[in-house]
Amino acid sequence: MFMFTQPDPVLESTAGQHVEKEKNRFVKLLFKYNAVVLLIVMFIVATILSPYFLTPENMFNVLRQQSTFMLVGLGMLLVMLTGGIDLSVSSTVTVSSIMVCYCLKPLLMQNQSWGLLVSVILAIVIGFAFGCINGFFISVLNMPAFIVTLAMMYAGRGVAFIITDANTILLDQSVPANEVFVAFATGADPVLHLPYPTYVMIALIIVIGLVLHFTAFGRLITAVGSNETAVQLAGVNSKKYKFWAYAICGALCGVAGVILAARTGSGTALSTSVSYDMTSIAAVVIGGASLKGGEGNVPMTIVGVFVLAIIGNIMNLVGVGVYPQLVVKAVIIILAVLLKSISSKRVD
């Protein structure tokens, strides 16, 4: 029949239901932090599958490789918190990595004592400039982020090939400046034996984390993504925050580009085909962020980056081919996001 009884307030607070509620809370937490569970499970599986996995060499290798992905992931988190997306990160990273090498070699800065420092700064500035262009079109001119950053992706790729003339700029490591530069990425500190890029990564994680979770700037970036109209009507200049999200994302890509150039000792336009864009979006989403904005945080993004990193690492160790790896990654991404969508339905 078309009859539904009214909920009885007395029934609702019985002891049995209280236990049920506690249980629900646990399940809810599990769903909310599903990426952490995923990471732990994969860690255990990896340890069982390969004895080499937990060795310091392998761990440091993962850390070294992931520093670039982590920096791009942090930038992507900022952008996605505002409800946007940045498809141009791969191009930005590449242009920045080429910029370092171009300054050092064709521009001969490698022969100056200040050359390395200036090259690195210029590369980061280029990344920042890319971000500013994205931010300008998206926030000031109100254009869709998807389109603007897609266009910037092509522009960056083009610029990369133009500068390098489609060749690889290989740094001559007998020159002291270049030697120092490459040693920065390949070497490790004498005490803890951690790769230097890892320190850069940790420092930037801390800075972005503090900014996002403890300052008005971070608060308002999240608020803008949560509901831009409401934030505007509350008297907040939402455009400013959107602009800076893209600009900072660009600068972080710039830093990632410098690390990439140092690690390979070269700059090549072919790096544009490394999927920094999709990997970082996947990492941020696995970390619980929403494509609609307003959700996501730094710790969970770190988890997301390492979930993807460890899948790749373990499959390399047990000798799974590159192409099957892609399929496995796809399954993990779908799984993580599926859990999230199920859990948000439960909350509703």
């Binding site: 008005a216 308002l220 949560s226 509901n227 934030v231 009507l233």
Partner: peptide, 18 residues
């Protein structure tokens, strides 16, 4: 337009006076 539903009450109260 009035409130940010998903964000904490506290954040909403201080939004315009951050």
């Amino acid at each position: 337009q009035g409130v940010l539903l998903k964000l904490p009450i506290k954040y909403n109260i201080t939004l315009s006076a951050i």
